[in-house]
Amino acid sequence: KTVKFDGLQFDFDNPEKALKFALEVAKQKGAEVHIHGDEIKIE
């Protein structure tokens, strides 16, 4: 899975870790997590 935000991109082999990371970043930024297939966007 790939996590994208602020023009940055982070690749994870483990989908659970990717989602956990995305949710943590979103919480800190006050943003929402959007999942599109293998891509997780924080907006």
Rank of each mutant, 00 (worst) to 15 (best):
H34D: 04
V3K: 04
K29T: 13
I42P: 00
F10P: 01
D13E: 10
K29Q: 10
I40S: 03
L23Y: 13
L23S: 11
E32I: 13
L8I: 06
L23A: 12
L19M: 10
D13H: 01
T2I: 11
E43L: 13
Q28R: 11
V3I: 05
H34T: 10
I40W: 02
F21H: 14
I42F: 06
T2H: 06
K4W: 14
D38Q: 10
G30W: 07
K17S: 13
G30S: 06
E43M: 11
E39I: 14
L8N: 07
Q9I: 13
N14L: 05
A31H: 08
D38H: 10
P15E: 12
V25S: 00
L23M: 12
D11G: 06
D6I: 01
A31I: 08
F10D: 02
G37M: 08
V25F: 08
K29S: 11
L19A: 00
E43Y: 12
V3N: 01
L19G: 00
E24R: 00
K20R: 10
A31D: 04
K27N: 08
F5N: 04
P15G: 10
D13W: 06
K17E: 15
K20C: 15
D6H: 07
L8R: 03
K29P: 02
F21L: 13
K17Y: 11
H36G: 06
F10S: 02
E43A: 09
Q28K: 10
K41T: 14
E24Q: 06
F21T: 15
E32T: 13
F21Y: 09
F5D: 03
H34V: 12
I42K: 03
F21K: 14
G37I: 08
A18C: 13
G37R: 07
N14E: 09
Q28G: 06
K4L: 12
G37T: 05
K41D: 06
A22R: 00
D38P: 05
K41V: 14
K29D: 06
K27A: 12
E43P: 05
K1V: 14
F12G: 02
A18M: 02
K20M: 11
E16S: 05
Q9H: 08
I42R: 01
Q9G: 05
F12Y: 02
E16Q: 07
F10T: 02
A22G: 03
I35N: 00
K1A: 13
I35K: 03
E24T: 01
N14F: 04
D38K: 09
A31F: 12
E24D: 08
F21A: 14
H36A: 09
D11I: 13
D38G: 11
F21W: 08
D6P: 04
F12R: 00
D38C: 15
G37H: 05
D6Q: 06
F21S: 15
V25N: 00
E39M: 11
A26Y: 00
A22H: 02
F5T: 02
I40K: 01
A22M: 04
K20P: 00
A31W: 14
A22F: 07
P15C: 15
H34L: 10
K20Y: 07
A26K: 00
Q28I: 11
K17T: 13
T2R: 07
K17R: 08
D38M: 11
E16C: 15
L19W: 08
F10A: 01
F12A: 02
K17P: 03
N14P: 00
F21Q: 14
G7M: 03
H36K: 09
K41W: 15
V33S: 01
F12S: 04
K17V: 12
E32F: 13
E32V: 14
D38S: 11
E24Y: 01
Q9L: 09
G30Q: 08
A31Q: 07
A18D: 12
A22S: 00
P15L: 14
H36Y: 13
K4V: 12
A22V: 01
G37N: 09
D13F: 03
P15V: 12
K27M: 12
A31K: 09
I35E: 04
E32L: 13
A31N: 02
E39R: 03
D13Q: 06
K29M: 14
K1F: 14
L19R: 03
L19Y: 08
A22N: 00
H34P: 01
F10W: 12
K29H: 14
F10M: 05
V33R: 00
G37K: 09
G30F: 05
V33K: 02
N14G: 04
I40M: 03
L8D: 04
F10I: 09
K20S: 07
I40G: 01
K1H: 11
K17M: 13
E43I: 14
G7T: 05
F12M: 02
G30C: 15
